[in-house]
């Protein structure tokens, strides 16, 4: 009797397994076929982007992706957005402290990542742009980047054999305007979501940290999380992190607000994907993570508007970090690297 029950159970579970497998495979196939649009990761906050005036559609996203990798956006058709925002480098310009744009002209800041921008309400290291739709105007028209005018870009796209029909599919009209050009680019950019790191798996209860990672997480929460707020690992504020004035004297947020208390403040960068995005800081002055931690742990001196959180209260500035803590913290930071993001074919050229 018992044997029969066992056999029955076995058969039953086999059937269940078969059914669920079939369902899984079918679901996967559907995923591949069906474009899912913008989906907020479960452990992320509500996005800041105005999807009500620019919902992501498959046609709009694909158009935006083509435009993102389109060198016609630059004066002599040599530089695309993807030139300095390289997916395999977490959409930054790996290995470049400041980026070189058209004619190898050098900019003055490190290229920030195109990552989780749907949650940002201000853009660039100084926050001078307040709508993602308006952001591409900056690199397109900047002398050191693409050195082109939007008018010329629109003309080039209108004369292109493919774009008018792609714009019609995306926006209902083959007419290419400033607004539709910028909105298509936004549709691609908001889809550049990094939410599949090991950290994210842990947060979704799909994995657990190792003891070292967990210790590092605790250190992070105690010493880093007030600025590098989870789960984006930035609070999207502007702060002076005490690294000192750069060689070019870049005043940062002051240039936008003309407020003396904003001088030398820059946007808090995310800690996601550090493995792919060196060098670090607004001017790319640190080539390694250890160089960054060295600065925080030891080499910090007072500078105008240094963030009060870095004030140790004894005339010293920085963050205490023992050798052991550093190992643990780095183990945790390593869990923020999102390989799926840097390899996601959906975002590739």
């Amino acid at each position: 009797m018992k044997k029969r029950t066992n056999a029955l159970l076995l058969i039953l579970s086999f059937i269940i397994l078969m059914v669920s497998c079939k369902k899984d495979i079918r679901g996967l196939e559907e995923d591949l076929r069906k474009f899912l649009g913008f989906e907020k990761p479960v452990h992320f906050p509500e996005p800041a982007y105005h999807f009500d005036t620019n919902p992501v559609t498959e046609a709009g996203f694909k158009l935006g992706r083509k435009l993102f990798y389109e060198p016609r956006l630059s004066r002599n058709n040599t530089v695309s957005c993807g030139s300095c925002h390289i997916q395999s480098s977490g959409f930054t310009h790996h290995g470049h402290d400041v980026s070189h744009g058209i004619d190898d002209r050098l900019g003055r800041r490190n290229a920030p990542p195109i990552m989780n921008l749907a949650w940002h309400g201000t853009f660039n290291l100084d926050g001078g742009v307040f709508d993602l739709d308006l952001q591409p105007v900056v690199p397109i028209t900047t002398f050191e980047e693409m050195d082109e005018t939007l008018d010329n870009v629109l003309e080039k796209l209108r004369a292109h054999p493919e774009y008018p029909s792609m714009f019609r599919e995306a926006f209902g009209s083959p007419e290419i305007t400033t607004a539709t050009l910028l909105k298509a680019l936004s549709q691609f950019m908001v889809m550049c979501i990094s939410s599949n790191s090991r950290y994210d798996s842990v947060m979704r209860n799909e994995a657990v940290f190792t003891a070292t990672e967990q210790a590092g997480y605790t250190i992070f929460q105690r010493k880093c999380a007030s600025c590098h707020k989870e789960p984006l690992f930035t609070d999207i504020s502007y702060r002076n992190n005490g690294i000192g004035i750069g060689f070019n004297g870049d005043p940062g947020r002051y240039g936008v607000t003309l407020d003396e208390s904003d001088r030398y403040k820059f946007k808090v960068p995310s800690l996601r994907n550090l493995k792919y995005t060196a060098p670090y800081m607004h001017d790319g002055r640190f080539y390694t993570l250890d160089a960054v931690l060295d600065k925080y742990a030891g080499g910090m001196t007072y500078v105008q508007n240094i963030d009060p959180l870095l004030d140790k209260g004894n005339g010293q500035y920085g963050i205490e970090l023992s050798a052991e803590e550093r190992v643990q913290l780095k183990a945790f930071l390593n869990t923020l690297n999102d390989e799926h993001f840097v390899r996601n074919k959906l975002l590739a050229e």
Binding site: H50, D126, V129, D131, D133, I140, T149, T177, T178, K183
Partner: peptide
């Protein structure tokens, strides 16, 4: 929204005669 920036408010002008600050 950029949809509402048409006509003379279109930020597409160039550096020379453009009337818009991108940065």
């Amino acid at each position: 929204d950029v949809d509402q920036r048409t006509g003379v408010l279109d930020p597409s002008g160039g550096m020379d005669d453009g009337m818009y600050w991108g940065w």
